[in-house]
Amino acid sequence: MALLGLAGALSVVITVGIVVALLLPALDFFREVNVWDFLSGTRWAPRFSNPDFGVLPLITGTLWTTALALLVAVPVGLGAAIYLAEYASPRVRKVFKPALEVLAGIPSVVYGYFALAFVAPVLLEKIMRIELGTFSVLAAGLVLGIMIIPTVASLSEDALSAVPQALRQGSLALGANRMRTTLRVVFPAAISGIAASIVLGLSRAVGETMIVALAAGNQARMVDGATQDGQTMTGFIAQTATGESTPGTLGYNTLFAVGLLLFTVTLLINMISIRLVRRFREAY
């Protein structure tokens, strides 16, 4: 009992510790850089001799890769989930579900390399004839999307499968076909689980580092097209954290300011989605 209590207390202490460790250098940073300049500036050059700390370029980088990832993962993931939960035979499901989980276990550095070595030069440039540089938010976003498909599909499938059979029967007995039953009864009944799966996928996409560091590029710039390269918040953190920076310097503190922003964004996404789900769910 005491041991369990200790473990519980420890996890709380660690969490608080992380927040404090993140917060203190970030506060130092905002003592030197105006919060508004940070949030609205369009030039990100923290290492230059006359540095600029406008974080919008990193935000646009993250926005583009994340949006592209969702564009891939939501339709494919939900399609797969609906197929598995509502149409696939038990045998197909038995093969597919574990396959999805294996896919979810592939390390992201492998995905990053896949984006860099195959998706960008072969799939996008050679086959689809899209002109790209070595790095692009398009390649990174697509592969990011592929990476989160299993998350979306697997959790959505759980949510759909958990909808009582009686609801499907009720709909079918009225003369509704299977597609309408799926879309108008089963899907709304499972919406909170489905939304949760998308939010989890979204959070993973926002927080994913390896893929974007390898495939999106490491030049922070305002991104306004899918074929451009750019840096994301996580990409910047990875780049800076692996370089040499002395604790206490502004360059070092920048890391934590961006980290705090990332943390806040993720938190906001979660809060908004919880609200949305409460509003639209049809709980059974």
């Binding site: 009582p164 029967q169 709304p188 049809e282």
Partner: peptide, 10 residues
């Protein structure tokens, strides 16, 4: 068809 257990939609 009407079922044994009432099954209204949510």
């Amino acid at each position: 068809m009407v079922f044994q257990k009432p099954n209204p939609f949510p």
